[in-house]
Structures are given as C-alpha cells and as structure tokens.
Design a protein around this nucleic acid. Structure first.
Lengths: 345, 345
DNA sequence: CTGAAAGCGCTTACAG
DNA sequence: CTGAAAGCGCTTACAG
C-alpha cells in the first residue's frame, strides 16, 4: 500500500482531534480545549495559533466524547405514537423548542401504539443516556422505567398517565372537555346522543366516555347502551358504529366523536345522510372550519402539553426534588356549526 | 456528611458501570462486556453470575460511551423546516423507519426556515457525530457542510437541492407536476390562469412557476404578469394576490396554488366569492376530499421522499463510493372537483 | 498563562 | 475461557 492511514483516519471518517490541533499549533491539549470552549486564560497570541490550526484542520469538537466526560448529554428523548400524526406535530415542536432553549437536542421516535416498541425505544434512549424522557404511553405498565427514573432520567408522561408507576403526567381534561361538549349538544335540544370512542384500554377514551355519561346524567337523560361504542378508530368500525346508532326506530340525533380520527370518519358518514345530524368532536384539526358546516370541537392545546411537560422535565433536571404530579390542562369548546344543528324530529 | 458518595454517583445519577458489575460478579471487565454484548466464549456458569450482578445492580450499558470507542453512533440527524408541519410528518416517520431498520436512532429539529438556524442545527448534529444527515434546506449555501461531508458524514438533501455544493438530493418533480396540473386546467377550457407561489428564492417555487409557464406555452397561451405572484405564504399576502387576480376587467378563471399553505388560503378566498373559480393545488392535504368541492391537487409522496433519501444515506454509509446524484420522484394529479370547474364567462 | 496526568465507560487487540 | 492494558476524544483536577 502506497499510503499508510493514521489510526484516526479509520474512525469518524478521518476527523482531526484536539490532539491533532495541539500538535499543529505546538501547544498542549488543554490549551486547545480552552480555546474551543472559550475559557479564559489564553494569551491572544496563543489563541490565534490554536484558531488557525483549528481552521486549517477543519476541527469540530466531538460532543459525543465531551458528553461522556461531563455526565450530561444535553439530549431529550421523546417517545410518541406516530411521528406522522398531525396531532403530535405541535407537541413535538413544543418539546423541541423547550429543549432548544436549554441547549438540548431532541431524539424522538414512534411507538406505533405497540407497548413492546415503546419499551424498546424508551430503553434505547436511556442507554444513550438522554437527560430526560417525554413519553406518550402506548402500554399500560411502565415499571420497566423505574430503575431509569431512580438512576436520574427525568421522565414525564404526556397525554395519558403512566401505568403502575408514580410519575409526572401532563394531560388534557378529557373528562371535563367531553362533559362540556355533550352538554353543549344537550343545550341545543338533543336528547339521544351517540358516543363513539377509542379502545377502552386507552385512558383518554374512558375519561371522555365518563364525561359523556356525566353530562347525560346532569341533564337527567338516560343512555341506551346502543348509543355507546368504544373500539378501534379504523374507518370501517367507526362508520359501522355511526350507521347503527343513526338507524332503527329511535336513532340518535347527535354524535360525540371521541377523537380526531373518529371525527373525520363521522364527517364522511354524516355527509352521506339525507338528514342533518349534529356532531361535536374531541380534538381540533386543520380545516375543521372550512368544512360545511364547520366542525364544532373540544380542542386541546397539543403544543401546551409538550411545553408544560418539557418545562417540568427541566425543572426536575435542575434538581428541585419535586414529588410526581398530575397536571391537567383545560380544553376549549370551539363552535363552528356542526354542533349547533338542532335535532331532527 | 453521614454518607460519602462514590464518585460514580455524581454522574448520570448513580448508574452502575461494567466495572461495578465485574466487581460484584467477581470477574474481569471484559467478561462483563462479553455477556452484555452476547459474545461467545463465556461458560454458562460465569454468564449466570454476571447476569445476576447485572440484574441486581440494574445495569444498562452506556451506549454513549460505547459509541465513542466504536466510531459510529448509529444515529441519523434530520433537519427539517418545522416539526409541526403536517407535510413533513410522513417524511419524518419514513426517515425514522429506515433508520430503525438499520438500528439507528433519529435526532431531528426545525430550521424554522432560518438559514442560520439550519446551519447551527446541522453542525450541532455533526458535533454529535451523527452517521448521516438528512437536510431539508432552508438556506441556499451549504458550503459549511463540505468539511463534514469530506469527513464522512453521509448527507442527503431532500425537497430542495443543496446550495453551492455537490451532494445527493431527492426531490419531487415540481416542474412536471405543475406543468401537468396547469395543463389539466387548460384542458378544462381555462385560458386565464393565475399562479400563486412561495418566495422566489425557494427552488420548488421557481420550478413550479416554470412548469406553469411551460404548460401555458405548450397551449400557446399568453401569460399576463399580473397573473403570477410569488412571495410569502402568509394568508394576508396570498389572499390579496388571489383577490387581485380575480378582479379587474380580465380576471383569471382558475388558480394554481404553489403549495399546501397557499391552497388552503385560496380555498378560503374562493369560498367567499359569488362565482365558482377552478383551483388546483400543489401538495395533497388531509380532508382535501371532504371539502365541497373536493380539492384537485398535484400530490407528492412525502413518505417516499424520506424513504428514498434515507436509503441513499445508508447506501453511502455502506461505503459504496457513489457520486452525488439527483433523484426525482414523480407527482400524481388527483382530481376531486375543484380543478374540474369550467371557466365562468 | 499553560500543560501533563487521570478518568468518563466502554471496546479493541492481545496475552495468558 | 478469561482478563489486564491501552485507547476512543474529550474534561477535570491539579501542578507548575
């Protein structure tokens, strides 16, 4: 071989290290470190020589090595359900912005609603020694995170509470939001209202159902069990459930949709019906106001969920020995037309 | 102080290391490493002792340290415009899935369309020594990445080409897509068609405008400069541009919207008009089919952009000395009604 | 103002 | 089958 490669050329491509810079500038390693990190105690002349060597070599500090020595990685991990779900976009961005304000980067990934994948991902992030973890739970048993939390990984759950461990959680007021949305329909004159929600093992689904039942009870209205349907949010199931509630001798005159996916399918079903049916959906979505009628929704503030959770995470990291808390964010009813359709007789 | 803390307790919380495991199991460090990594050459009995120590101590390998020694971080960086933009959701997820298939994690962040922030973020990722970088450019000068690419960071640009450097780029056929969309309007009888697009310094904006002009030229139609408007995609500007084109003695009878944000604003403007105006938009969006009329769009496959780009990245990492390539993905015209409205006379 | 030594938690290359 | 030594690229703690 005509050219022998220096050992360092086999690693990270062939990046120069502080050692290389030190050799070229004719100074000690520590002096390079001082210049790179802007520490005081270097004469202008020395600094200039080091800076020239840095530029000539194209040196960039290896933060990965730095992190090992410093103990903190300046990295936040985020486990969410699906990176491509628009609902989580603002949450994702909010986590990024708070992390950025603290000089931290964001590693994120999708659980795909699979508890095993959630666990695998969360633990991979712990192995990378993220300083903190924001988790939107897919599973309902998070005891696997207990050793990590004990070891100092600041962990905050969002959107749904952690399962079988005591930890911070930030969520929207699903119960109150659903109760208010259903009360709005009742105030509009509806007495037979259907509820279509997500799987019953999902915390938000049962909370919203509870809100629906509370609103009905508040108004002294009975709930026929055929008006309630929990399960997959796949379009086929949701439209079947909707059609079933809307047919028969005593059809519902209004629907409450338990989340954004259900709402969208409900809109499609209702658009194909001859008579108008009222609809209120949990979760706002883009263009809800452009539809005819506009869709009345119980909106949660996804960005606030992410912001509050990540703020909490950094508070923990700051060492204030906080006990685990449950932080609930209010929802907001946005009336746009679909929820104000009167009952058809 | 009643309790003195071991040095290791001050770092990463108080995590046990391989050294701690080795001490507890009464074996050498290397033996622990073998067990943790499933390497052969350990007797079942030794392995059992080590495993017990691991479990008792709650040991989890520090991948951050491992990475330093191994030279590759098994991490991909993604710089996009906005983590909360629904258009990038599927792209983000696709990058994650390909990375995951290669055992890599994903660090991502938003440039917020700010070239300085793009640079800062991309270089921070390089400092963490990501193995590869997927960049959706905000700026138009990427020479700052040249040393990194030379040093071995596999870099692929997506959606827009890199500026002033020669690098891989994966993009949609903006020119062809726009040309086809405008040709569709012309085939429907339109002769006066407006084009509203993004800032002229954005590559896709000028490509789409070029497609518009080509389609008009193909049909022998003149283009009045008042029919063309490039600039911010803020609703105020877009609606002003649309209203201007739609008024006067010779108003346009159809609009071509250069991207999803423009399309949405155009829909709002058109909904407020007395007469129907045809609309074709570049980029598909959720619920486009639920609007009345449904919105005809030139759709690009955002997930495919991410997938192809990340595949390319790992091909590079595999060491096949590929020359930089430009990979163009086809678009698809989806007719839903708004683009099939005939010209009003 | 400057730098040599030790160490972060692992893996590599080697010797027993 | 097993482990001591060296090293990845930095920072820390210290001495000059």
């Amino acid at each position: 071989m005509p050219h022998s490669r220096r050992p360092s050329e086999t690693r990270y491509g062939n990046r120069p290290t502080m050692k290389d810079v030190a050799a070229r500038a004719g100074v000690g390693l520590k002096t390079v470190s001082r210049v790179v990190n802007g520490e005081p105690g270097v004469t202008p002349d020395t600094e200039k020589r080091v800076q020239e060597a840095i530029d000539a070599l194209g040196f960039r500090r290896n933060d990965s090595a730095r992190v090992l020595r410093k103990g903190r990685t300046a990295t936040v991990g985020l486990v969410l359900e699906d990176l491509s779900d628009p609902f989580y976009g603002p949450l994702n961005r909010a986590v990024e912005e708070v992390a950025r304000a603290h000089g931290a980067l964001l590693i994120n990934g999708s659980s795909a609603e699979d508890p095993d994948r959630e666990r695998e991902l969360a633990l991979a992030l712990c192995a990378r020694r993220v300083d903190g973890l924001v988790v939107i739970p897919a599973g309902d048993d998070h005891r696997y995170l207990e050793p990590e939390i004990r070891a100092g990984v600041a962990t905050v759950f969002v959107d749904r509470p952690a399962g079988r461990i005591d930890a911070d959680v930030v969520l929207s007021d699903s119960f109150g939001g659903a109760r208010g949305g259903v009360a709005h329909l009742i105030a509009g004159g509806h007495r037979r209202i259907g509820f279509i929600g997500d799987h019953p093992h999902i915390h938000t689904a049962t909370e919203r159902l509870r809100g629906y039942r509370a609103a009905m009870a508040d108004a002294g209205l009975p709930v026929a069990e055929s008006w309630v349907s929990l399960g997959a949010t796949a379009p086929e199931r949701v439209s079947a459930a909707a059609r079933s509630m809307l047919s028969g001798p005593e059809p519902v005159t209004a629907l409450f949709a338990g989340n954004n996916r259900v709402t969208v399918t409900a809109v499609r079903v209702l658009a194909s019906l001859p008579r108008p049916v009222a609809l209120v959906g949990f979760d706002d979505f883009e263009l809800a106001d452009l539809l005819r009628p506009g869709i009345t929704v119980v909106a949660q503030d996804a960005a606030a969920l992410g912001r509050v959770a990540t703020d909490r995470l950094f508070q923990r990291l700051a060492g204030t020995g906080l006990p685990p808390a449950r932080i609930e964010l209010p929802t907001r009813l946005i009336t746009r037309g679909s929820g104000e359709i009167p009952p058809s007789s």
